[in-house]
């Protein structure tokens, strides 16, 4: 378990590389709104959902009501409903093969952890998959919380001094997603990928990004079902 956990931590480095700058930006943006640094870190510890945390501080800045904020955060994270079942299917372990409760599988299931797990888990032997996935979650979570703490407590001194650095940090997560896509693209019918991309792109013109994401995913799943029905 320890060895596979360490492998998971190693594989979480590419996620951490994307998380740390974004988390630092979050920490910075939140303290600029006057939220206490310890509360900013607590947001990351308890919520742990990057995009919705940015929306959260935007809503706080707009003095939105408490329950409206919570409702919007939940709505933004509805896409996570799809991740668990798809993850378990990809991991391919029967319930008696899993040593840890499902709570441990769910706690750190973010977009990036899900995407990396889907792309990489089958590269590991069955008996190492659980430990690897837990390591992946731990690494990503530590990077997010640690990055938030850096932003909230120290970030103001050195962030924003290089335009190229700021711009390049924004490309880390797309680069990670693209690398993962190259890994798994051959296992999926091309129309699924194209329809997802086109639907998401068009949806972005009329819907918020998190809704476009859900729409694209559902469109891809529908195409996959249609292709499988005809086969």
């Amino acid at each position: 378990m320890i060895r596979s956990l360490l492998l998971g931590l190693r594989d979480s480095l590419s996620i951490a590389l994307g998380y740390v700058p974004v988390a630092i930006s979050f920490g910075l943006a939140a303290i600029h709104l006057g939220i206490s640094p310890y509360m900013v870190v607590l947001f990351s510890v308890l919520i742990y959902a990057g995009a919705s945390q940015f929306i959260l501080i935007t809503l706080i800045a707009q003095q939105t009501g408490l329950f409206s904020i919570v409702l919007i955060i939940w709505l933004m994270n509805v896409r996570h409903l799809f991740y668990g079942p798809a993850l378990l299917k990809s991991v391919g372990l029967a319930s008696d093969e899993r040593k840890l409760p499902l709570v441990a599988w769910a706690a750190g299931l973010t977009d990036e952890v899900f995407a990396t797990a889907i792309g990489r888990v089958q590269h590991h032997p069955r008996d190492q998959r659980e430990g690897w996935y837990i390591g992946l979650q731990l690494g990503a979570y530590s990077a997010w919380v640690g990055g938030t703490a850096i932003g909230a407590y120290f970030g103001a001194d050195w962030i924003g001094k290089s335009v190229v650095l700021d711009q390049s940090l924004g490309f880390v997560l797309p680069a990670l997603f693209f690398a993962l896509l190259l890994d798994i693209a051959s296992a999926v019918a091309r129309p699924v990928l194209w329809v997802t991309a086109i639907c998401t792109a068009f949806a972005m013109f009329i819907l918020p990004a998190y809704m476009a994401l859900i729409l694209g995913m559902v469109a891809g799943a529908v195409v996959a079902a249609l292709i499988n029905k005809h086969d």
Binding site: P85, D111, V192
Partner: peptide, 26 residues
């Protein structure tokens, strides 16, 4: 079975959608 096949496609579809959304904002 159809639901399971759709779930298997959700992963790659999510990755593509995440690429489009993250690059779209860039």
């Amino acid at each position: 079975r159809l639901l399971h096949q759709s779930l298997a496609a959700i992963g790659p579809a999510a990755i593509v959608a995440l690429i489009v959304v993250s690059l779209g904002s860039e």
